[in-house]
Design a protein around this nucleic acid. Structure first.
Lengths: 341, 341
DNA sequence: TTGTATGCGTTATCAT
DNA sequence: ATGATAACGCATACAA
């Protein structure tokens, strides 16, 4: 009685299943793991016993034996989970739900906290590490001699030997620009975000190159740099309309900026997209689909980045190591702010 | 040589440290774990050896022995991580960074996927489970006989024996209403969200009760029910201004709705907060601080919910079980939409 | 086909 | 103060 109560509390072990089925633990193990050389009838008895005792194999004990824990650590630095959640979902998909479990740790941009998490994860014997940054500027490596594969996502590592996956912001710039050009827009302005961000410059580069190829010049000759806020969008758009009233398209550095721009345009009596088309980056659903009209925006495809990271870890585990900064294409999501209904 | 290469790959074990320090594993273990009865000099030698070999204790092996894994599973159903990330951060804080690691699994509202994750987590021998729902309506329990403590957050379990933590939406309704009344507003309307949500009704209840106590009646007698969208906010506000032009305050069911309301008010030429004060629920930063004026909103305090959940799991692990639905107070964040600058 | 014995890395008990 | 050894739960090589 005490025995079964104990079992109920701590859960049945393989030994219990074996005893219940009247076989040895070795045989029970083979039966449960679908290995050859075990009599069908025996297998059935074992499976039945396991079912009856609601046996759940102790993955930790398995790990101790196999060396693989089936877990991955994800250390993130983006406070709101705006990046890390979709990246985690992508990784989960790629691993196969339940096959691999993911530890999520929020380091909150703090190196000390990051170190603590790193230590804890290595101690838990994760099979790999995914490091997610909050901006695409290169960052110092989390460790120079990690005993497991490390993949950097969104923010690449400064070290060339490390493996990183980042969104193609230059390509993102090209995507919006080509879209606007294809709609016949020629007076295109760019209200950018914070000039200290690499993403800002990459996007500008893509925009500029595409415009140049089409023989078109950016309205005002250069982007308007500011911050990633609606208020900046409002202010910049107001100034823009004064300095360059003929503008017929505005590329915004983020959806937040675009929201502000839309507001200013509405107040100025400019119709979107008829008079002026508006497009932006990030495709943050809550912002992009709430506005009127909804925003055409470039999606960074975080899920895809997560999938790439997961596959890279698998590959490294199988000995196929990789390195360098890999650029993942973005995706243009067209909505009402560039194409009327 | 092959030996040390092997060590480098798999990481140093306690045995290696012991050998390097010239002691037995038992002594090494004691030294590293600050146990008594080990000579200071010996301890120093061991610690030094551990440092030199960059020894990281295998937490899995420790678990196998102690029965405690130092991990918790967090199964979430909110796609965007809007709830789960702050809840996870709260839990991390409460546990102490690095002390406890959290598996984050996204079940995406799918029961099958939830089952898979549950199985995987139990197999990994998590010490507890946190289940996060996407709405405050009671939900079926994730399991009726889990071998570890389970805590439901945001969405409470239907079973009375289970333990749940939810935000005090009735109190949230009271908070905004009291705030508006204290500002002298008496013609208060409520543009609510989706009527199928428990949160909607709880908030209405709090609003109604507070108004009744002040002898004030809701403008239009009842709330305007709709959806959690900006477009609903725009439409409802427009109608409201027509049917009840004397309204001097609007409580919105969510920040999204409030954004739509603000837009309509601006178009109608009503000044906020001078003519009409606007307040809402959720305090979703990106929405609440981007608008002009910024939104006064009730914060659901997800971090606090996460902390409560973590502490409850600790308590249960120590034998102090608890049950029932625990209601956590919300917090009013006052901004420009109710109080002019 | 089944069972026995061993190891995975750590901690704790009990000798010494 | 230190060391030998038995768990912890599982999987596998090898023996029967």
């Amino acid at each position: 009685m005490t025995q079964s109560a104990e079992q109920a509390r701590r859960g049945a072990r393989l030994k219990d299943v074996a005893e219940a089925a009247g076989v040895s633990v070795a045989t029970a193990s083979k039966a449960l793991n679908d290995r050859d050389d075990v009599h069908p009838a025996t297998r059935r008895r074992v499976l039945e016993a396991a079912e009856r005792l609601s046996f759940t194999p102790n993955a930790l004990a398995q790990t101790l034996h196999s060396g693989r824990s089936g877990t991955v650590g994800l250390i993130t630095h983006d406070l709101e989970g705006r990046f890390s959640i979709p990246i985690l979902m992508g990784a989960e998909d790629s691993f196969g739900a339940g096959k691999m479990s993911i530890f999520l740790c929020d380091a909150r941009g703090d190196a000390i906290r990051q170190m603590h998490h790193l230590q804890a994860l290595l101690s838990r014997r994760v099979d790999g590490l995914i490091i997610v940054g909050s901006r695409t500027d290169p960052r110092p490596p989390v460790a120079t001699d990690a005993p497991v594969p490390v993949v950097y996502v969104y923010a690449p590592s400064e070290r060339a030997e490390d493996l990183s996956f980042v969104p193609d912001n230059v390509g993102a710039g090209r995507l919006v620009t080509e879209h606007l050009l294809s709609l016949g827009r020629r007076k295109i302005a760019h209200i950018a975000g914070d000039t200290s961000y690499a993403a800002t410059h990459d996007r500008v580069e893509g925009i500029r190159a595409t415009l140049a190829e089409a023989g078109v010049q950016l309205v005002g000759e250069k982007p308007w740099y500011g911050s990633w806020s609606e208020s900046w969008g409002r202010a910049a758009a107001a100034s823009l309309l004064t300095s360059d009233p003929a503008v017929d398209a505005i590329i915004c550095g983020s959806d937040q900026i675009a929201r502000g721009v839309l507001e200013s345009l509405r107040e100025a009596g400019r119709r979107v997209p008829d008079d002026i088309a508006v497009a932006s980056f990030d495709n943050w659903e809550i912002l992009a689909t709430g506005s009127r009209p909804q925003l055409t925006s470039v999606d960074m495809r975080f899920e895809a980045l997560g999938q790439r990271a997961a596959r890279a870890i698998f590959a490294a585990l199988e000995g196929r190591e990789d390195s360098g900064v890999h650029v993942e294409p973005c995706r243009l999501v067209v909505r009402g702010s560039t194409i009327g209904s």
